[in-house]
Simulated scan of single mutants.
Amino acid sequence: FILLGFSEYSDFQVPLFMVFLTIYMVTVVGNRGMIMIIRINPKLHTPMYFFLSHLSFVDFCYSSVVTPKLLENLVVEDRTISFIGCIMQFFFLCIFAVAETYMLAVMAYDRFVAVFNPLLYTVAVSPKHCLFLVAVSYSWSIVSSLTFAYFLLTLSFCETNFINNFVCEHAAIVAVSCSDPYISQEIILVSAAFNEISSLMIILTSYIFIFITIMKMPSTGRRYKTFSTCASHLPTITIFHGTILFLYCVPNSKGSGIMVKVASVFYTVVIPMLNPLIYSLRNKDVKEAVRKLVNTKLPCH
Rank of each mutant, 00 (worst) to 15 (best):
I208T: 14
V123F: 10
K43R: 12
R79L: 12
Y49W: 03
K292D: 14
F209M: 11
L104S: 12
V113Q: 05
F60K: 02
F17A: 09
N164W: 09
L133N: 10
F246L: 08
L247C: 13
V115L: 02
F240G: 04
Q89F: 05
D59N: 15
Y62V: 03
H233W: 04
F91T: 09
M217Y: 06
I38N: 08
V136Y: 02
S228M: 15
A171T: 11
L104F: 11
M107G: 09
L293I: 07
N41E: 15
Y9K: 04
P47Q: 11
V29W: 07
V14M: 15
F246W: 07
V65Q: 00
F50Q: 12
S141K: 12
S7A: 14
S56E: 02
S126K: 04
P47C: 12
V174W: 03
F148Q: 03
D180E: 10
C168Y: 06
I210T: 05
P235A: 02
I81F: 06
I244P: 00
F51G: 11
Y224L: 14
K284F: 10
I23G: 02
G33F: 12
R223Y: 05
M107E: 07
F148K: 03
L52M: 10
I210K: 05
V250I: 13
K284E: 15
A171Y: 14
I81Q: 15
V190K: 02
K225E: 15
T22L: 10
V143L: 15
S156N: 11
L293V: 04
F211C: 10
P276W: 08
P68L: 13
S141Q: 13
T238L: 14
L55T: 05
S10W: 01
H54I: 07
L119D: 10
L119V: 03
P276N: 08
V66M: 08
A97D: 03
F83A: 01
K292G: 05
I271D: 08
P251A: 09
G85A: 08
S63D: 01
Y121M: 03
F17L: 14
F57R: 08
N31Y: 05
I203E: 04
